[in-house]
Design a protein around this nucleic acid. Structure first.
Lengths: 208, 208
DNA sequence: TAGATTGTTAATCGATTAACAATC
DNA sequence: TAGATTGTTAATCGATTAACAATC
């Protein structure tokens, strides 16, 4: 198993580097270019690039743009296609099923599950099943990632079922901090907090 | 102007505290209860609560649950209703317009803008206008928050227009690090990075 | 050679965690 | 009083930033 040599903070900046570099046409890109364009510290950018790049940067020139783009896409996993199921096909869940952007990021949603569904229904090209069938279907589909968009009341219970069914990575859109075993990873998408930061800024003008 | 006395990290944990406390029925809640339930450090929880609570916690008992719930909802801005426009009404934009959960969080999306729209169209109860009309309409609506769901190529240009139209807070779903003046706040919702964390974990098993 | 840019080592900063005193 | 829990002060940890040497 390959071990990641960079932090989550670095990973979070990579998409921004990638987009900037894809918008350039020069042979090379320097950390200073990137730092200036993105409003980041130059050393931070350089360290991020060094952690991800397969070729060292060159004095006086910077990093070769194209190989670096490949390395970043690789680090972000854009090459490999992941399959995921989504649990909770309400407004947000339906939205995410329909969201085309995921395909570009290498994610295919292969099935949905929802308590309200009795027989199978379809949301565009994605089948949605009753949550009862989760236990059976997930192992058969051999899917390891789940997107959790159920309401807070059910989140932990559904999470437990997912783990029992073999899910190893959960993208959690609920407002519950999930309890999972050590070999399962959870990534929280905390919309309430994001919104609160913006809302509070508007009402107080405090930018810190 | 009131100054926020807690960090963004604290703010990000508040929704989880809130949900846990709302699921209880006891008179009081202690930091240890919360820490155990959520898998957090006890001192961290205590400091978070102290920063947000209007009443001090009491030795031997903890914090009074109901007043604390009120304080957290207040800190998260659930009481006040914010209005926002959304720019870029593709799949993700439409999804967010339809997402009912925002209402509970105190957000109302009052209008959308999209380059593809000529005359006014409606997505459920939300009018969507041509992006040309952004300049005029945003000041007239007196809206200060915008949700940005345009593609990367247009993100900075649209951002500039928004700022010119008086927007002060931007919820950025694009993969561009936006350049804004000091008096405008941006919150990045970085789905590519979130997905990359999960995807990488699945492919390498590295949980650090 | 001079200068731009990298890469590395050390300093800073802020958040988390530990230790412990205060209080009911 | 003893014990549970708070609140505070100090230590730790990790990420960011600064200083600077190496290199083309």
């Amino acid at each position: 198993m390959e071990i990641r040599s960079f932090t989550i903070q670095t990973l979070e900046r990579l998409p921004y580097y990638l987009h900037y570099m894809e918008s350039r046409e020069t042979e090379d890109v320097s950390s200073r270019d990137l730092a200036n364009a993105l409003g980041l510290n130059e050393v931070q950018v350089r360290k991020d690039l060094a952690a991800v790049s397969s070729k060292a940067g060159r004095p006086r020139r910077g990093f070769e743009r194209k190989p670096l783009i490949r390395d970043i896409r690789e680090a972000l996993g854009f090459g490999r296609m992941d399959e995921a199921v989504i649990v909770g096909v309400g407004h947000l869940g339906t939205a995410l099923i329909n969201y085309k952007g995921f395909r570009e990021l290498g994610l295919r949603i292969v099935a949905g599950f929802d308590l309200q569904v009795e027989d199978e229904i379809w949301v565009n090209e994605t089948p949605v099943f009753s949550s009862d069938r989760l236990k059976n279907l997930i192992p058969r589909l051999n899917v390891k990632m789940a997107i959790l968009t159920v309401n807070s009341e059910n989140a932990q219970a559904v999470c437990d079922e997912l783990v029992a069914a073999g899910i190893r990575a959960i993208w959690n859109f609920s407002q519950v901090m999930l309890n999972v075993p050590d070999n399962v990873i959870v990534r929280n998408e905390n919309m309430a907090a994001s919104l609160a930061v913006l809302s509070e800024y508007l009402s107080t003008g405090n930018n810190k």
